[in-house]
Design a protein around this nucleic acid. Structure first.
Lengths: 198, 198
DNA sequence: GAAGCAACTTGCCATTTGACAAGAAAAGAA
DNA sequence: TTCTTTTCTTGTCAAATGGCAAGTTGCTTC
């Protein structure tokens, strides 16, 4: 069902492994193991304490967050269309997640779990390559994000965020962007005031 | 040369993919692509601006660091024996590293680069699985480390670090541990004073 | 061993940052 | 639409944190 909608997923797979031929039989096997999963704004893809699945986000925006030692909600990531979204520790170790992931805009995508994904790795060689490419992409992305927290000032991180995430910036709340940048909403407000002056 | 020394590497590979049979021919291929690489204390495995390789640390201790926007050195990771050490962004994207990696104790290990590793992935199927396992392990490790920075207080992170890294704690300088924990050496000193009181 | 250097601790002070609160603006519900 | 709730901004204030400097300890090197 909804196989035509899954074309988005198959296109994405092809795009992640451009050098590999994938038979239509393999594509069918892959599409079968993902199910259409849409979210409306504020709905959760993953709740703290649950075990993360593997979600290809075809359309919409998501936000991951956790809590600091004083109980403040801290945003750990934003995701736009074209990303595979999962919480690595929870997904690979089958452990309860300390992060939650929530839609900040209506989302369309395709969902699967560890077992199904492992089955595909086993049965569809080209899909292993896809899995590896996703892993590399997300690891690199996460390292760059965390290193920027060290290397750049809050002002610079804010400027970069606005610049390279124009779309997400439209939908995310400022308080969520603030905690993502490692500051409070108060401080972000002051940074924005100073930016506006120039 | 030094093939007998490389047994440590081969043992490690076997341990990372316990369910797979690897022919002795394959093992030879793998061992050939790694070269023995030892470091004395204070020597660099990777310098900022260079492109990261792939290093299996058989013995010794390493420290990764970068600089914040005010020029302070910030330690981003410690590594003990049994770890594969590389800077993900630099290694996978062939880009100059923003981190440096330095020995904090004499090290023995085995080194290779992206091209050699890719060749192995191509020629030795079981090694692909090893590469994937390493990637998962390091990604999970890094996520847990960065989430702990949010979820736990500096005191708790210090207690955890002492508890689960007794060996590294022996060799690492307190100022390096301090920046790893996200605080200054001054603050760590005060935390230690308070810990000692109880 | 002695001298020199680096690491660690501690006190004092300045500054940044966040907490809190009040008001304005925007978004959502009825 | 109007009412209600949430978000955002801005001010004041308090507190945590870091910078700096001095003193001590412990390594290293000659």
């Amino acid at each position: 069902m909804q196989t035509e909608a899954k074309q988005l997923l198959l296109d994405f797979i092809h795009q992640m492994i451009p050098n590999m031929q994938v038979s239509s039989e393999s594509l069918r096997l892959i599409a079968d193991k993902f199910e259409v999963h849409n979210l409306s704004r504020h709905e959760f893809l993953l709740k703290e304490g649950k075990i993360s699945g593997y979600y290809y986000l075809a359309e919409g925006f998501l936000r991951a967050f956790t809590f600091d030692s004083e109980g403040n909600e801290i945003t750990t990531g934003f995701y736009g269309s074209g990303h595979v979204v999962f919480e690595a520790s929870s997904f690979f170790l089958h452990r309860p997640s300390t992060e939650s992931i929530q839609a900040i805009h209506d989302c369309k995508g395709f969902y699967t779990n560890f077992e199904q994904l492992n089955g595909l790795f086993h049965n569809v060689p080209a899909f292993r390559e896809f899995g590896r490419a996703v892993l590399v992409k997300e690891f690199v992305r996460y390292k760059e994000q965390t290193l920027a927290m060290i290397n750049k000032s809050a002002e610079a991180r804010y400027a970069d965020f606005m610049e390279s995430n124009r779309e997400i910036f439209q939908y995310a709340q400022l308080k969520h962007i603030a905690s993502f940048l490692g500051i409070t909403d108060t401080s972000l407000s002051r940074i924005r005031r100073d930016f506006a002056k120039k």
